[in-house]
Amino acid sequence: MSAHSEHHVVPVKVYLAIFGALMVGTALTVFVAQFNFGVLNVLIALTVACIKATLVILFFMHVAYSSRLTKVVIGAGIFWFAILIFMTITDYRVRQDWHVGLGSLEKPAAEQPAAPQPSGSGH
């Protein structure tokens, strides 16, 4: 039915190589995080994390050797997830006032102590 991929046994060497790559990726992420590159920091961190996740999915989770049906299910899932993320983010971005909407958390707290002072006489 589903090709001869079923009895594929991934060699131990592959597992060890993936483990090594994951460790190198972790070390690289921590090394880069020492420096302040601004927006680049999170981009580098996410790029390395995506590469690590892809390695885990392809080899530890055997997707590289899986049937086409399995690959389609995963691809559709990730595509749907991308819609969730991108549609929401673009919606937030086009609303000019979305930062204002969430607002600075400190403002209400800062105004509260100032309010009772003018009305010293109370009720």
Partner: peptide
């Protein structure tokens, strides 16, 4: 079971840099 375990690992692969490393440069 291995698939589940690796998935939980992948979640942490993203959590670690996003939570622990985004302010790490302040440490230096």
């Amino acid at each position: 079971g291995g698939l589940y375990w690796h998935f939980v690992d992948i979640v942490w692969i993203f959590l670690f840099p996003l939570l622990y490393l985004s302010g790490y440069h302040l440490n230096v």
